[in-house]
Design a protein around this nucleic acid. Sequence first.
DNA 1: CTTGACCTTAGATTTAACTCTAAGGTTTAT
DNA 2: ATAAACCTTAGAGTTAAATCTAAGGTCAAG
Lengths: 152, 152
Amino acid sequence: MYRIGELAKVCEVKTDTLRFYEKHGLLAPSSRTESGYRIYTQTDADRLRFILRAKAVGFTLAEISELLSIELDKANWACADVKGLVDDKLSHVEQKIAELERFRRSLSSLSQACCGGPESAEHCSILEALETNCDQIRCENHRHDAKQTHKQ
Amino acid sequence: MYRIGELAKVCEVKTDTLRFYEKHGLLAPSSRTESGYRIYTQTDADRLRFILRAKAVGFTLAEISELLSIELDKANWACADVKGLVDDKLSHVEQKIAELERFRRSLSSLSQACCGGPESAEHCSILEALETNCDQIRCENHRHDAKQTHKQ
DNA sequence: CTTGACCTTAGATTTAACTCTAAGGTTTAT
DNA sequence: ATAAACCTTAGAGTTAAATCTAAGGTCAAG
Ligand SMILES: [Zn+2]
Ligand SMILES: [Zn+2]
Ligand SMILES: [Zn+2]
Ligand SMILES: [Zn+2]
């Protein structure tokens, strides 16, 4: 039996978070004291840990709600249903990774094209790429107009 | 010279977006008609394309504001400043990718541990992993209690 | 001269997951 | 018995980047 602050401490979340989960139907305390304080049982704590593990693999709270309703009524759901949720999430995550990979490659090209030195940005390859077309980044370092080479 | 709807069309954004960029200091039309309609010049259009290219490589609008203020006053900024913005963004993107990669690996393990069949989820490896510890996923397929093997 | 496409504004709504605030009641220890 | 720590509620604020709404003004064509 835990009060909200105790459960929050053992699970390393804030009391606000537990009230938020309750408001959103993810986790309600099994009972209340006469004065209205929330009382969580071990079962409640286990449910919270389920939620936190699901969060740790990337599920949103809406998805976790689905998982919890399956968890509470396993007999009426199939492995296919559970795996479906996981696979949907997996492909979503893979899509997001692909987008970020595109960002990473573009940024990396931009970075490599710029000397990063103390010279004026008037001829910075990064700015030039953004002015014209990011696909056409000249990956060799740009030259600043002065005859002197870049300071190292 | 474009009116808002024309510029929106050639750059494939919504008029709402252009008004939003104006409200947030990213792009203001060079003038207005007597009746208040926005008039964008070619320079304005170029600035919009700069913004859109920067978005395409992952910069937020706040970061794009910084880039734009450098772009408008290149002589007083160094390559180092520009490259710094790019490198900060790059490491941020890499961090985000790393997190999503952890999600991807966990989800992939979960997916592989589940038969995905029409059998009851009572012994689903995915749910068991979320109940106990996601790090200890048995990657061989679980067995359902019935003697019959899973339907293919 | 009216229809329809386009434009104006300010402000509300969306999404996700909290986080914070204000104003007050309860428990526990000293 | 009083102070500190804890609890309660409803509701507002945060972040990012739009997107939508309402109520109304402008302009070209037929
Ligand atoms: Zn340089
Ligand atoms: Zn440079
Ligand atoms: Zn199965
Ligand atoms: Zn399963």
